[in-house]
Amino acid sequence: MRPSRRTTAILVAILVVCLAAAVFSITLADRARPSATLEETLYIPSPSVLKRMSLGYTGLLADIYWTRAVQYFGGKHVLASHEYKLLAPLLDITTQLDPHLTVAYQFGAIFLTQPPPNGAGDPDAAIKLVKFGIQENPDNWHLYYNLGFIYYLEKKDYGAAAQAFEQGSRVPNAHPFLKLLAARMAERGGDLETARMLWTMTYDDSKDKDIKANAISHLRALQVDETVPRLEQLIRQYFERTGHDPGNWAELVRAGYLPGIPLDPAGHPYKLAPEGNVWVAVPDALPFITQGLPPGVKASEMPKL
């Protein structure tokens, strides 16, 4: 008089198998869905309409749009896309819905600014976004930092950058570093040391893993950009002394120029190229580098720091 064991077993089997198969088919469906037909038209573009439709749950909706923005960027970045049409509107909607979601400004400051494939390449949109952020959160020094950063990074407008950092440094509890940055902008805006300071600051200042990863890429690129000219200089010195280029790193090590075989930040040994040049072994592993690129490998899309 108990429930039938056989029926139970069959039903459990059906449940498990069907659920697993359903999850599998939805992943297939996800792939079958062209981003153009669904994603790009799915969103309601007007923040004010959305605000009304959210029935007051703007915070929740902002979170949803924030994840959409991150997903959108992440998804396209993996595919090395050159178009991030929706990133600006998505961040715009997110911040309109919740103007205090600072991470969205930070995200926009970097990924709207950087040129494709590492960002939308739209620094003006980024500036607009962050300025809106400052207007809504005038006491948040991070946003002034982000603004200065955009001017510095893409606009190369060291004056505007210095002004933003300066304004930020006057906010109560601002990081003392901002003052230093403001000063540095004025004198030596373009040097590598300043860039290293900025990216280190960005790394320390953010909790977002995309932002952190991006900062690390930049810091590594800076290291390459610094190392390659130094190595090339050593090779020139060796040439001047011996009259020929070294055949391998070992010659330089034996001659006392280097303590060992030099490795790039990705862990690969640098390559000794003809005519005293130095290349990185795997350029794809090191985005943003401007030095050590083999000829023919495009460096133009990388930001100049």
């Binding site: 059906i14 449940l15 498990v16 069907c18 659920l19 198969a21 359903a22 088919s25 939805i26 297939l28 469906a29 079958a32 869905r33």
Partner: peptide, 16 residues
């Protein structure tokens, strides 16, 4: 293909 996968998904999910 989307029609196919969505059909599969909906039917399997409902069966479960």
């Amino acid at each position: 293909s989307l029609v196919l996968y969505n059909t599969l998904y909906a039917l399997l999910y409902s069966a479960a």
